[in-house]
Design a binder for these strands. Structure first.
Length: 335
DNA sequence: CGAAACATCCGCCACT
DNA sequence: GTAGTGGCGGATGTTT
């Protein structure tokens, strides 16, 4: 990771989360994450805090991949030494990826010339101005231009990082990381984000797509792996292999995850009885619903509903008293 | 909660 | 020889 003054905490965190955590117990290879800074000493992050680099800039030279987090001020200076290092790495065919406004750093080094790139949607025009020879795309989460990759806003950075992992290590490893990232050890409250858009590592080209869609729209039927196989016109054994290769998940696991998700949705948005929620999500019985929710989310259906249900309930006190000064970036807008 | 019935996963191997 | 398919069976996990 290339750490510059004003790097955004979120992007720094995503990179750290994907490559900085030992997940060898789930079959993820061992990564070495170097946090390379241009100066000796801590760099200020945005919107607050500082981070001490673990390595100097020169340590980028023998990395397999360089990731550039976005900066709060996209137009902030890029030190000449950084430009030189990035160019040299690019010459040496090192993969370079920028998250969000990190694209401007690549633009400053001329690495986006004559290729496609993207960035946060609020910055697209500015990127086009800063990099006139770049084909700036507005309709994508990220652009994979082979050795130079760029990503759109915040969530696009996560997608891009997982894409990089998938490219280098296969869909299974990417799925293992994604699973660990979106299904945190759950507690009773907070953290809504893992509920809605799952970072499903979707197959890039799938003969299975029709079957997945079909299963998803019939989740209330007790469909099992053999029904999936029948629908796909494959034997169970082959479905298994194909499925694993395409999604990094096994069919049974996938089905179960879909069911739990549907149950979550129903709990959030309806007041059906547990029994009905279990039926409609294909989980069968209320007992089973409880069991599955507990093992996937660590929470009982009742607590889940009370935490995330749309009907307001009296249990959540507002933060008491004292105004807190808003935490705002003094430099750039919110993006 | 535990026991019994049922599914899934996956290495192995034979077949096309 | 390589590549893909699919049946089998036992360990493991899930549901009743």
């Amino acid at each position: 990771m290339l750490l510059l003054p004003g790097s955004r905490i979120f992007d720094v965190a995503v990179v750290s989360e994907v490559w900085g955590i030992d997940r060898t117990d789930t079959g993820v290879p061992e990564f070495q994450l170097r946090i390379c800074g241009s100066e000796a000493g801590a760099e200020p992050l945005m919107p607050a805090g500082k981070l001490e680099p673990t390595h100097r800039l020169t340590a980028l030279r023998d990395c397999d991949l360089i990731v550039v987090p976005g900066r709060a001020d996209p137009h902030a200076d890029v030190p000449p030494a950084v430009v030189r290092t990035l160019r040299a790495a690019h010459q040496a065919r090192t993969q370079i990826a920028a998250l969000c406004s990190g694209a401007f750093v690549l633009a400053a080094a001329g690495l986006l010339d004559d290729r496609q790139a993207t960035t946060h949607w609020r910055l697209l025009d500015q990127l086009a101005a800063a990099a006139p020879r770049t084909d700036v795309r507005s309709d994508v989460l990220f652009v994979d231009a082979d050795d130079v990759l760029t990503s759109a806003g915040v969530a696009g950075g996560v997608d891009l990082c997982l894409h990089l992992v998938r490219r280098a290590h296969g869909v299974g490893v990417a799925a293992a990381i994604a699973r660990r990232m979106v299904t945190p050890p759950a507690r009773d409250g907070g953290q809504r984000q893992y509920v809605d858009e799952p970072v499903t590592v979707r197959p890039d080209k799938v003969p299975l797509a029709a079957t997945l869609d079909w299963a998803q729209s019939h989740l209330d039927r007790p469909i099992g792996v053999s029904e999936l196989a029948a629908h796909a016109g494959l034997s169970v054994r082959t479905l298994h292999r194909t499925f694993l290769a395409a999604t990094g998940e096994t069919p049974g696991r996938w089905l179960q995850t879909q069911r739990v998700r549907r149950a979550q949705q129903l709990l959030e948005t309806s007041d059906l009885t547990m029994h009905r929620v279990a039926e409609r999500s294909g989980l069968g019985t209320a007992t089973n619903l409880r069991k599955r929710l507990r093992s996937h989310l660590g929470v009982s259906p009742d607590i889940y509903r009370r935490t995330f249900g749309s009907r307001p309930h009296p249990l959540r006190p507002l933060p008491a008293g004292g105004e807190r000064p808003p935490l705002r970036s003094p430099v750039a807008g919110d993006f």
